[in-house]
Design a protein around this nucleic acid. Structure first.
Length: 107
DNA sequence: AAGCTGACTCGCT
DNA sequence: GAGCGAGCCAGCT
């Protein structure tokens, strides 16, 4: 499960984001499980590309994500509480293809 | 093994 | 847009 989630997140290209629900649907689990994996093992991947379905994050994470977003050209919402997920959401079909290949490589 | 927790989401008000 | 309740299920105690 952990491996699956991490692989999925690794397929999100720079400058793009996905929601926890997107990753959950991709790997076949629930949104909260994605959150759990990210909390415990997310430090090794581009965790700032995974946001809530509204594009926001908790206050702590937000501060740490902002520099990355700025670097990748991900725009922040007017209220400053998250990114514009509607403008930056990764292509889910392409993501599925890349993910499938990545987990096949898993063994 | 049983219970609790939580980087979430959806529907309703 | 904000607040509330229910559903979700892997991981930790």
């Amino acid at each position: 499960m952990v491996e699956r989630v991490l692989r999925a997140v690794e397929q999100v290209p720079p400058g793009r984001v996905v929601s926890y629900g997107d990753v959950a649907a991709l790997v076949g689990t629930g949104p909260r499980q994605v959150g759990t994996v990210m909390r415990l093992y997310g430090s090794g991947v581009a965790w700032w590309r995974v946001v809530s379905s509204h594009g926001d994050l908790g206050a702590d994470l937000l501060d740490r994500a902002r520099p990355h977003w700025a670097e990748e050209g991900i725009l922040v919402r007017r209220n400053g509480l998250g990114c514009r997920i509607a403008d930056h959401r990764a292509d889910l079909a392409a993501l599925h293809t890349a993910y499938t290949a990545a987990v096949a490589d898993l063994g």
